[in-house]
């Protein structure tokens, strides 16, 4: 069994916990409950003939007052960097989270999720500027959530 640690990083209230909840349990809860510290979830994921397990770290969101402790980032093979596509400041902060992650894990892979796409209008959704390895996701509707995790897993395991 190959186990790999992946992180969900981003500002607070961008939907990191909800993305994991959708991916692991296929459920969603609208109520905002702040995450403190870390919570780990596991997901079995066969990649070809290899038995793999993702150890998914739901890390508490960064706030203007508190950045993510480095101890949480140690030994991660990959990260999903999450922003709320409706909150500009969380998008502006993506680069900072990527730098932080890469500083601790220079070989680590990452993908970017612009979450809460269900709040965008149809026109905004259509014209959203997406770069490669970025996803417009909705934990509420389940849009592109599996793609997000499986793309990162492929990057890590291949």
């Amino acid at each position: 069994m190959i186990r790999k640690k992946i992180l969900l990083l981003g500002d607070f209230n961008v939907g990191k916990t909800s993305l994991i909840q959708r991916y692991i349990d296929n459920t969603f809860d609208d109520k905002y409950l702040t995450t403190i510290g870390v919570k780990i979830s596991k997901k079995f994921l066969p990649v070809g003939t290899i038995e793999c397990e993702l150890i998914i770290w739901d890390v508490e969101g960064a706030t203007p007052q508190k950045q993510i402790p480095e101890q949480y980032l140690v030994g991660a093979s990959g990260a999903i960097i999450v922003a709320d596509c409706n909150r500009e400041e969380t998008i502006e902060n993506l680069e900072g989270h990527i730098k932080h992650f890469k500083a601790v894990n220079p070989d680590g892979k990452y993908v970017v999720a612009y979450n809460k796409s269900d709040l965008l209008s149809a026109e905004q959704h259509e014209h959203f500027d997406l770069k490669p390895e970025t996803f417009l996701t909705s934990a509420k509707r389940g849009e592109h959530v599996n793609d997000l995790f499986s793309t990162l897993a492929k990057e890590i395991f291949t």
Partner: peptide, 14 residues
């Protein structure tokens, strides 16, 4: 131990 404490995954070097 990693079966019970998956938090250890990634901390093997430590």
């Amino acid at each position: 131990i990693r079966h019970y404490l998956p938090e250890i995954v990634g901390y093997e070097e430590e």
